[in-house]
Amino acid sequence: MLLAVNEGKVIGQLGLIPVRLKYDKEIFEAQWACDLLVDPGLRKKGIGNLLFEDGMKRNMITLGNNPSPKAKSLMLAKGFKHIKSAARMTFPLDPSDLLNWVLPSKLKFLSEISGKILKPYFNIKRKKYNAEKSEFKYCDAGEIAPIISKYQSERKQAEILHDNEFLEWRVNGLENFSHRLETMKAREDSYAVHSHFLPYYNVYDWNCSDEKIFIEMLSEIFNEAVKSGAKTIQIMANNPFEEKLLKDAGFLRPRNTETVIQYSPGKSIDSAEYFHFTYYDTDNNL
């Protein structure tokens, strides 16, 4: 965390989360930039600019995910570049909650009525994915690490390295703030990392080798999401196969993909055409 301080008072901050980034067969030190905040009374005075300049002096790749319009403008001006990335897919267990985000303020009164009309449709979709038997078993994060490592070694896309150290840090959660994430696997080629972060139920990372295994995974996710009281399930699709599976199950895709922007001092990943993004790469459950 970088702080801008004036006369003993904090007037701005920039969060920087350390990670290791894999691109092709190389590993790079990197950091996610997040939570840029400046005292409202001191904005437009270059404080955010100074925070970014200081963060970028670390001579490592800096990443941003879904920055606010102001932060995005500042980052692009500093030389950040877009990378195509995943599609965030959502399943509304409570459609009225989703409609609250979509409808303009003057039409929000329709969200509850419309939600009640739409809910039976999504309930029918959900019940179609009720597997009587499942090969998925809950396990420690260390048991899914070899599966993740295998898939990452095969991909040539830019992505955060999910090794044992990363998994132990991100799966264990933070005391009195975020829950421990659940990890489960099927066979030796399919896994899922998931948990509630109310009002959402997030699937942080997943891979299913075929449609049968996907149905079994989704059955467990639906059951756990309903038990948790979540209103919306969120999951990433990183390729057309995953997106089709999710759409067939009733998941909705927003108009935009995840926004990932990067700055690499030595242009080390400027040639990357895609960023394989998972839900716990950045600060989504921190």
Rank of each mutant, 00 (worst) to 15 (best):
S114A: 15
I113L: 15
T183N: 00
Y151H: 14
H194T: 08
D205Q: 06
P120S: 10
S178D: 07
P146F: 00
S195T: 13
K150F: 14
E216A: 01
D210K: 00
Y204C: 11
F197G: 07
N172D: 10
E143A: 00
E175P: 02
W101E: 11
F166D: 03
H179T: 04
H194R: 09
G142P: 04
W206P: 00
V171W: 11
S96K: 04
V203P: 05
E175Y: 13
Y138I: 07
L198R: 06
K185I: 12
E132W: 09
L174S: 10
N202H: 10
C208P: 01
D205F: 02
R170Q: 08
I213D: 04
L161K: 03
K156I: 10
P104C: 02
A158W: 04
S190W: 01
K156H: 09
W206D: 05
L198F: 00
A192T: 09
S105Q: 07
K128D: 08
Y151I: 13
N130I: 00
M217T: 01
G173H: 06
Y121W: 08
K212T: 05
S105Y: 05
I148Y: 13
R180V: 08
V203T: 13
F214N: 08
F214I: 05
G142N: 13
N172C: 08
F136I: 03
E154R: 11
L98Q: 05
D189Q: 15
F214Q: 12
D205K: 03
I144H: 10
I117T: 15
E143S: 04
N130F: 02
F136N: 03
S190R: 07
L161E: 03
S134G: 15
N172M: 03
E135D: 14
Y204H: 11
E182R: 15
R155W: 08
R126H: 05
Y121F: 14
L103G: 04
I215D: 12
V102A: 14
V102M: 13
Y200H: 10
E211G: 03
E159F: 08
E216K: 01
E211Y: 12
I117E: 12
E159Y: 10
F109K: 10
V171E: 12
D140W: 02
M184F: 11
L103D: 10
G173W: 09
D97S: 06
L98S: 12
F166N: 04
H194K: 04
